[in-house]
Amino acid sequence: MNISEVKQIRITDFLQSLGHRPVKIRCGQYWYLSPLRTENTPSFKVNDPTNEWYDFGIAEGGGIIELAMLLYQTSNINEVLRLVSAQADSVPCSRSRPFCPLPGRIEDTMKNITVSPLNHYALLSYLHSRSIDTGIAQRYCKEIHYDLYRRHYFAIAFENVSGGYEMRNPYYKGCIRKKDISIIEYAAGGKQEHVCIFEGFTDFLSYQTLLKQNNAIVCVQGMCDHIIMNSVSNLKKTLEVLGEYKYIHCYLDNDLAGEKTTETIAGLYGIRVVNEAIRYIDYKDLNDCLRGKRR
C-alpha cells in the first residue's frame, strides 16, 4: 500500500485488528483506553467521519500514519506503510474502506465576507435567549456576514489569535479561516498570575455575565487573563501558553472531553491547576449554569 491507500483505512478498524475496542461510541466519536499508554479511563478519541484521532493524555493526534508511528515507534514512513499494510492484510474486516473524499469545509465556499460591530437584533436576541449579557457580548464579539449558495447569512464572530473567527448563530456553529485559540489579556502585553480556561466563547461570555452578577461561580474577582480553546482539539496550543501562569482555573464542560482535558492540564502543571467545573457540577457547562438548566 502507498500513503494514499493507507490513509483510507479506518482507524477504528485498524485499532480493532490490534485488539483495541472502544469503551464508548457517540455521534461518530469512538473513545478508547489509550493504545499508547496505560490508563483506566478512556481518553483516546477517534473521530470516525474524519478518520482522525486525539489522545488527551499526551495532547497529540493526527491520522493513521501518525498513530502508527507512535505504536510501532518509528519515524520511517516506508516501515510504517509496510507494517500497517501487513496488519490490514492479516485481518480481512480491517481492509481499506472504499475511498470517499470528505466534502470540503463549508466555510471555504463562503463569499463576500464582511465583519462589523455586533448590532444585529437577531443575534442579540439569540444571546439574550442564552441569558448572556448583550453589552458584554458586544465588547468581545463582532458579527460576520457572508454569502453561501447564493443566499445571505450572518453570525456572531469571535476572533482567535490567528485572525480566524469562531462563528455561531441559532442554526450554525463553525470557524472561518484558521482554527486557533483565543486569548483575552487583562492588560495588553503582560501576563497576570491567574488565567481562566474555557472550551468555547459562549462559556467565556457566560462567565463574564456571571462575574457582572457577582455570582459565586466566579473564582477570580481581580486581575485575570482568559484563554478560550475554541475546541478541546486545541489542547496542545493551550498547553504551550500556560507555562507563565501561577494559577490555572479550568472552567471546562462536565463531560468526558472536558474532564480529560482538565486532567491533562493538571498532569503537566500540577497543583497550579484548579478544576473549577465542580462549582457547577449539576450542569453540563457554564451557559447551562447561567440559564439554570440542570442535567
Rank of each mutant, 00 (worst) to 15 (best):
F204M: 01
F204A: 02
I3N: 10
I136T: 05
D108L: 09
A137E: 02
R177E: 10
Y251T: 04
Y126G: 00
C141W: 03
L210Q: 01
P49D: 10
R291C: 12
F99Y: 15
F158T: 02
I144G: 00
K142W: 05
D180W: 14
G292P: 10
A216Y: 14
V195W: 01
L235Y: 12
K7D: 06
C100Y: 11
Y140N: 02
V6P: 02
I144L: 10
N112S: 11
H20E: 09
I271L: 11
D133Y: 05
V46T: 06
G258T: 13
D180M: 08
I25E: 15
V46M: 04
T12S: 09
L211Q: 13
N230D: 13
V241W: 11
S4D: 15
Q29L: 13
R26N: 14
I227Q: 03
D225Y: 08
I176Q: 00
I132V: 14
V195C: 05
S17N: 11
E263G: 04
V273E: 04
V91S: 05
R168Y: 10
Y54R: 07
A277M: 14
A59Y: 11
L242A: 03
C250R: 07
Q16S: 15
D253K: 05
Y280T: 06
Q73E: 14
D147Q: 08
R168M: 10
G267I: 08
T261G: 06
K212V: 04
H128C: 00
G63A: 07
P170Y: 12
G270M: 07
L148P: 04
S116T: 15
N230P: 12
F198C: 02
K178C: 11
C196R: 00
G135M: 00
C93R: 13
Q138G: 01
G267F: 12
P92K: 04
V161G: 00
K45Q: 13
K236M: 11
E79N: 10
Y72E: 05
M223V: 05
T12M: 02
S75H: 15
T134Q: 05
P22V: 06
M1R: 10
T109K: 13
T114V: 07
G190A: 03
H145M: 01
I248G: 01
V232F: 10
V161Q: 12
D180L: 02
A266V: 09
Y283I: 03
I227A: 06
N234R: 08
L102Y: 11
C93Q: 14
A88N: 07
I156W: 02
I132T: 04
I9M: 01
G292H: 09
T41S: 13
F154I: 05
A257W: 09
H249R: 08
P22W: 10
C100P: 05
S4M: 12
H145I: 00
